[in-house]
């Protein structure tokens, strides 16, 4: 025990042997660590459960016929969802053809020309707000712009709707990739007399190409799983179709329709299609994220 004087001169005994860290503070710390750790595990449980259930329910029905055959009419058993896989690829192709050039150009502006300007600030703001727009509104937009003017549901309308979903992802990820290119490379290009276009097209973009590819892949993975924008644009089609002006089947829409109708065979096909869709998206997402991390 030692003594000390407080501010008005009274002598007080203070205990120097005992830590100021009372048991309560220690227990509280332990409790909070435990609690947040539990939260972390709790967050991942649904993902693991979902993947496990999709694999368990989908694997039985999955076979070569899943990729090559048409879905069965209600009441029949056999069949697959080959047309929906093809349809997803076609709509994604249209979406990529619109969103990739557009998004990459915008990203080039943001990282090469407009860094720090008010315009760039505004464009980034618009990109982020666009990313927050619900996918179903992208569908309504494409419905009013494409379906109503061309007179019918079509794969093209679906592609337009998905491109709205893809654009912000492409812009943001491509810009990040371009920003990773060292400033020295640009200076060296300009130093040997390259114009902006030459320096960007021959030096900066090739150097950032892997990140741009990752950006596009992530955007495709995201858009490929969207059903909401396709519900009243690409609609659905029970047959093979490659005509971009006709309705087309896609995996997400097929899963939605088959999940809510009461036929056992269709339900099984929905699970198998979910397994294919989820498998592709998870593999693409994991590998592109790992690649992106390696580059950093």
């Amino acid at each position: 025990m030692a003594t000390t004087e407080d501010t008005i001169g009274r002598t007080k005994k203070i205990n120097l042997t005992r830590s100021a860290r009372t048991p309560f503070r220690s227990y509280f710390d332990f409790f909070m660590t435990f609690l947040t750790g539990a939260f972390t595990i709790l967050t991942i449980v649904p993902l693991v459960a979902l993947v496990w259930d999709v694999v368990r329910q989908g694997i039985d029905r999955l076979g070569i016929q899943s990729f090559t055959e048409l879905p069965p009419p209600p009441g029949l058993e056999e069949g697959g969802f080959g047309n929906a896989i093809l349809g997803t690829l076609i709509t994604l192709g249209i979406a990529a053809a619109i969103s990739v050039p557009f998004g990459v150009l915008a990203a080039i502006y943001l990282s090469e020309f407009g860094r720090g300007t008010r315009i760039a600030y505004g464009v980034k703001f618009a990109t982020n707000v666009l990313a927050g727009i619900p996918a179903i509104l992208a569908g309504l937009f494409a419905y009013t712009v494409v379906v109503l003017t061309t007179g019918g549901f079509s794969a093209f309308a679906g592609g337009v709707a998905l491109s709205v979903v893809m654009i912000p992802i492409v812009v943001r990820a491509t810009e990040e990739g371009l920003l990773l290119v060292p400033q020295e490379m640009r200076q060296a290009a300009v130093g040997v007399g390259a114009t902006n276009f030459q320096s960007i097209s021959r030096i900066v973009v090739p150097a950032a190409l892997p990140s741009i590819a990752t950006a596009v892949t992530l955007a495709l993975a995201r858009a490929g799983g969207e059903a909401a924008p396709l519900l009243f644009t690409a609609l659905n089609n029970n047959f093979w179709s490659t005509d971009i002006w006709q309705p087309i089947a896609t995996l997400p829409v097929l899963i939605y329709f088959y999940a809510i109708i009461p036929y056992e065979a269709q339900k099984e096909i929905a699970w198998a299609a979910a397994l294919v869709l989820l498998g592709i998206i998870l593999i693409v997402s994991i590998s592109s994220r790992l690649l992106a991390r390696q580059r950093l």
Partner: peptide
């Protein structure tokens, strides 16, 4: 952290299917 990011990657229609039946 990667697994948590992946939750956002799962298509919502698959989550819906899982929600209905599981």
């Amino acid at each position: 952290a990667l697994a948590i990011e992946l939750i956002a990657a799962v298509p919502s229609v698959v989550i819906g299917l899982w929600g209905i039946y599981v």
